[in-house]
């Protein structure tokens, strides 16, 4: 399915890892919004979005990252992105995301950044 999208969740200590798989567009963004919203509502504010399986993103998906970043940081956490494939990364880059988000090459690195208190966009 060219518009399939799923979010898989796992925990690594205090950090929640949301693995995004497939196509994140205006049709599928509400699913991702709910996944992040659920974590934030339940007080889990250390989140890594594992983008290794994310093959497409449009502004609707980017908007979800943007709309939660401030609230999550104000709650003392961070929303980090990891393992973005080049085709998707070019979209993040066009909009200047690398200056605002902590984007790690791997989930492991994002976890290290959490333990070292490193945040993006500062």
């Amino acid at each position: 399915m060219p518009n399939a999208f799923s979010v898989n969740r796992r925990e690594e200590g205090s950090v929640v890892i949301l693995s995004l798989v497939g196509f994140l567009d205006a049709h599928t963004a509400p699913l991702f919004e709910k996944a992040i919203g659920d974590e934030h509502t339940s007080g889990r504010n250390e989140i890594v979005a594992d983008c290794a399986g994310l093959t497409y993103i449009s502004s609707a998906g980017l908007g979800v990252f943007m709309s939660f970043l401030e609230e999550i940081r104000e709650a003392g956490g961070d929303l980090k992105l990891a393992a973005i494939i080049p085709k998707v990364y070019q979209v993040f880059e066009v909009l200047g995301f690398p200056a605002l988000f902590d984007i790690a090459p791997s989930v492991e690195q994002a976890l290290v950044n959490f333990s070292n208190g490193i945040r993006g966009g500062e």
Binding site: S59, A60, L62, V64, M66, S67, E70, V94, L95
Partner: peptide, 12 residues
């Protein structure tokens, strides 16, 4: 800061 994501599509 305004928790808005509008306008991103047009920018792209």
């Amino acid at each position: 800061a305004q928790r808005r994501s509008g306008g991103l599509g047009l920018r792209l």
